[in-house]
Design a protein around this nucleic acid. Structure first.
Lengths: 158, 158
DNA sequence: CGATATACTTTGATTATCAAAGTAAAGTTG
DNA sequence: CAACTTTACTTTGATAATCAAAGTATATCG
């Protein structure tokens, strides 16, 4: 009897802790990320802009459709975001020579700096997590997050 | 030598996995929540509206300033959100009799239904997460989330 | 009573977003 | 190969969320 009660209450504790943590985390991550990213050097771009920059990435030119898909916005919305980033000097636009309908987008030097700045933020967050976990706990966490992530990605379109 | 390389690469793997998972999870949870909440019954309110409803809560009347503070928006922004929710019948506005500058806000019947709907969503999400985790996974997840939360809340105002 | 503070609303501006219409290039087909 | 369809993107018009600053009404303090 007692054992059962104990088990249940441990589960309840985990339940409450999870609920509480998820709510708080969501609130904090966004405001933290915003404040961490929008420094004096990059004061003219929004968190949203930074996410566009993140998706464009350092490696190679990307077309509008694929960027829009990654960001889960319409191409029209992306056009406006890219207009802004071009105006501010973070991003270059080019027409593809192969297919002249296609617009190829890439980061300027300034855009790459912003990208690296963002990377540092992510890095610190991940390191902060890893520092606090010992040995196989890290493994367990990765597995746990994977299965949670699976749930969300498969149930995404309800 | 080999052992060291192995260790480092295991850590790197964990690092990459964590980074990837966190980014994906964050995006997916938001879209999942949005889709789960905005059903046929509550098709006229946004996720944002739902968060306002959540903060108002079931218990007692709240004034504008305290709600705005909880949501971390200006009172002006909240005024607009509340105008909408009143127009749609989710929320009631009253003047305090004690201090007639103060506006007291509470949920209508319809608002309470929406609140409960949201609660069910949270409950199902947490249960879905818990169901997928075995043994110590739950513990480690909670611990990891706690440390992340700590990281964010202590570093919040940069 | 008059000055100041507080609680809220309004206003004007900006940003993000979408759906739908528009434009231009590429592909298909009779 | 001319006409139609599809694709890739931009533009337009509308809406929502947001802020800072100005405005309004009430309360408090000296």
């Amino acid at each position: 009897m007692i054992i059962k009660v104990k088990l249940v209450s441990a589960l309840n504790e985990a339940y409450d802790a999870l609920n509480d943590l998820l709510v708080k985390l969501f609130n904090n991550i966004l405001t933290y990320e915003e404040k961490a990213l929008i420094t004096d050097e990059f004061k003219d771009i929004s968190l949203n802009d930074m996410h566009v920059i993140e998706v464009i990435g350092l490696s190679q030119k990307k077309n509008m459709s694929s960027i829009a898909k990654s960001l889960e916005v319409t191409v029209g919305t992306l056009t406006i975001a890219i207009n802004n980033l071009v105006k501010k000097g973070y991003v270059k636009r080019m027409r593809s020579v192969k297919d002249r309908r296609v617009v190829l987008v890439s980061l300027t030097e300034k855009g790459m700096h912003a990208y690296k700045h963002h990377e540092v933020f992510h890095d610190e967050m991940i390191k902060a997590i890893m520092k606090r976990l010992e040995g196989e706990q890290l493994d367990v966490l990765v597995k746990a997050l994977k299965s949670v992530q699976e749930f969300f990605s498969t149930n995404k379109q309800i």
